[in-house]
């Protein structure tokens, strides 16, 4: 186990290094820069600006400088927001996205697993069809449709919520439902598939033969194996959901990190682009590692090998 984790960590470090290097150079080769503006600045002022941020040095030198400050945990200053550092921006915004993500994930898991399980147990009945329809809709109707629709009904017509914002607890409800809905759908479909496979197996029949109740069979015997596909889906999904959603955060004006991913690239805010990419990469790697460990615990057939 320890050997497995150590070797995975080393692999991850190497991958992270490659991600940083590729991102660093790719964003530099994109046309336009952080100071490209509609109203042109004079060449002298542009030179001063570049000197201020060290952009006048050779690129390889800037790359080494960046790696050096990264080693000290410093992600650098933001180009777009001069009085904030990238560390601060991530520190401010990641918790917001993570809170929204956690709420949405809770919603997705409760709805998705219940519906998926019901669909598997009552397969080919109307319950199954309703659950499958729900799953299809969640996958095919994008959040930028669901979000405004809910705002129209619940905020504008009924006046229960703010149309957007992130001030009080009530402001969490709509975005969490919309984001959760997008994840509930695949969770319910994966649960149904996993449960169907498990419910057809011998040990379930044995349990039935021993007279265990249907509820006990599902909660004590089937779910552990039936949720395996969901768990492997959750690794990348959790990384994605915790680091925010550009669409949801834009629709609901949430000060999360998801918008920074996209806007930093538009702004050519080099350091913020790198900061968000590194954050996402680290989360993906860490969560995939956790998923592997959890899967081994859930399914004795999986062995951890380095």
């Amino acid at each position: 186990m320890l050997r497995f984790i150590t070797s995975r960590l080393l692999q991850s470090l190497l991958a992270l290094f490659l991600v940083i290097t590729a991102t660093f150079f790719m964003i530099r080769f994109v046309p336009g820069g952080p100071f490209t503006a509609e109203k042109a600045v004079t060449p002298e002022i542009l030179r001063n600006l570049e000197a201020h941020y060290g952009l006048d040095r050779p690129l390889w030198r800037q790359y080494l400088d960046y790696l050096g400050s990264l080693g000290r945990g410093d992600l650098g200053p933001s180009f777009k927001y001069p009085n904030r550092t990238v560390n601060e921006i991530i520190g401010d915004k990641l918790p917001v996205s993570a809170e929204l993500g956690a709420l949405a994930l809770g919603f997705a898991l409760v709805i998705g697993i219940s519906l998926g399980t019901l669909a598997a147990v009552y397969r080919n009945t109307w319950i199954d069809y309703v659950a499958s329809t729900f799953g299809m809709m969640g996958i095919s109707i994008p959040t930028f449709v669901v979000g405004p629709l809910l705002v129209l009904g619940l905020a504008i017509h009924l006046g229960w919520f703010n149309a957007s914002g992130w001030y009080g607890p009530a402001d969490r409800v709509l975005p969490a439902i919309v984001l959760g809905f997008a994840y509930a759908a695949p969770v319910s479909r994966l649960t149904r598939g996993g449960m169907l496979e498990i419910l057809g197996q011998d040990f379930i029949r044995t349990a039935r033969a021993k007279g265990a109740s249907e509820l006990r069979i599902i909660t004590h015997h089937a779910l552990r194996g039936g949720l395996l596909p969901v768990v492997s889906f959750l690794g990348p999904a959790v990384a994605g959901i915790l680091t925010g959603s550009f669409v949801i955060e834009t629709i609901f004006q949430i000060p999360g990190i998801g918008r920074e991913f996209v806007n930093s690239a538009f702004n050519r805010d080099y350091t913020l682009v790198l900061g968000t990419v590194i954050l996402y990469a680290v989360l993906i790697m860490a969560l995939n590692l956790v998923v592997d460990v959890v899967q081994a615990w859930m399914n004795p057939k999986v062995r951890l090998e380095g």
């Binding site: 619940l154 006046g159 229960w160 914002g165 009080g168 607890p169 009530a170 709509l174 439902i177």
Partner: peptide
């Protein structure tokens, strides 16, 4: 979804507007 929201969406906070 309206039904869902009606169930879990109520909080003590009065709606702002």
């Amino acid at each position: 979804l309206l039904a869902l929201a009606a169930g879990c969406g109520r909080t003590d906070q009065p709606p702002a507007a």
